[in-house]
Design a binder for these strands. Structure first.
Lengths: 212, 212
DNA sequence: AAGAAAATTTTCCAATAGGAAAATTACTTG
DNA sequence: CAAGTAATTTTCCTATTGGAAAATTTTCTT
């Protein structure tokens, strides 16, 4: 009985890491139906640079990574949050800016509070989690910023990527980095009522006010 | 009344981002009592490269970032998670009802949630407003940031500087700029229970501008 | 406080990233 | 299917990174 051992040099390791990262970049762009030209405009990078980065031909510098993250409507954390965990093509769920504004799925009904207010640094939402016997597993939700949840009524199970599910009773709360994949479900046979507050880094004026 | 607006060019933004990132690198290294030489050996990078990176003189490429993360016993995600927060991907904090830190004044009893977490971009607090016949008027409270309040139980009157008092029933909420003088009081003959979330702009490193 | 040792920064140069535009490939549409 | 257009990749060149070693600063030690 033999086992195959593949030995990689240090540079081969970083090479393959970079190539995989490039794939994620491309996926992220394709998911939003953006062309290289579009992302180039949004991020301020050259088309060729993005093309090379996506194919792992070059290793972007920190500065360009930051710019690119901005252009793709994420932040550095979201870029790397899923890294290391097994990469299933298509399993990438980065919520686009404002996507969670009116989220109504089989499991959720969200009501954004104060939608008319601009430049909020927090986005409070009231939500109802429908009771289900079987939790239909949607994809994990990921987005930039941080998140705070309190259970107002009922019992809620919070699924956090790479960890055991956490059960929260009425009055319990949880605080986490939204870049981590997360998902809520009602635990009891009644609907649960939750309050969620997200930070919305993109809408923060201090970051968006700049000139060319 | 004037407000100061600081306008940054795109390159100034990435510059300061890089500089702050460098500071975090150095902190991370110092925390473990490692010398540049030690990290150089662990990561395979040159001493000079790490030195320059820590001072924001150069923007590391993806490859070197990956290597450095390895040498510092973290991963890329932890580097960037929540713009300098100490959250590692997969980590989160749960606060159980009633196991909060208490802070008590004549009118308020506040319980800060997650006091042990640093670099939160929000500060959630549970509070009890004692019932009073006469509201003893403290000075208005003012601080930077924004504020969000939900009434969990009872009836609350919110006094906002330069406006009529607002009465909130259970489930009602209010969102405002914390710079405006504000004050809460229980309206009924029972104590009221509120949840307050404040943004703490100063504690977010990535949005604080400074120079060497 | 002086000299030695350790740690960090600077210098200089080879290796690599990043941008503009040309070349190629993929996608429409008549 | 050909011509035209859009999207991507290549090419070529300049700007910047990253490493080795020298120079400097900081930290011990006696």
């Amino acid at each position: 009985m033999f086992s195959t051992v593949i030995v990689m040099t240090k540079s081969e390791i970083t090479d393959s890491q970079r190539i995989m990262f490039g794939h994620r970049l491309r996926q992220l762009r394709r998911k939003n139906n953006w062309t290289l030209a579009e992302v180039a405009k949004r991020s301020g990078l050259a088309i060729s640079t993005i093309s090379k980065a996506e194919r792992g031909i070059i290793a972007l510098t920190y500065d360009r990574l930051a710019q690119l993250a901005d252009g793709l409507d994420t932040d550095m954390a979201a870029f790397f949050a899923a890294e290391g965990s097994t990469f299933k093509p298509g399993s990438f769920a980065v919520a686009r800016k404002g996507e969670f504004r009116r989220q109504e799925t089989t499991n959720y009904v969200y009501e954004m509070l104060f939608p008319e207010l601009w430049y909020k640094s927090m986005s409070p939402m009231m939500g109802t989690l429908k009771a289900h016997e079987l939790v239909e597993f949607d994809e994990f939700v990921r987005h930039p910023g941080q998140e705070f949840l309190v259970v107002m009524e009922g019992i809620v199970t919070v699924h956090v990527e790479g960890g055991e599910p956490v059960t929260l009773q009425q009055g319990d709360s949880i605080y986490f980095d939204s870049a981590i994949g997360h998902l809520y479900a009602s635990d009891g046979d009644k609907d649960a009522r939750i309050l969620v507050v997200c930070t919305a880094p993109g809408s923060n004026p201090s970051k968006t006010s700049y000139k060319e």
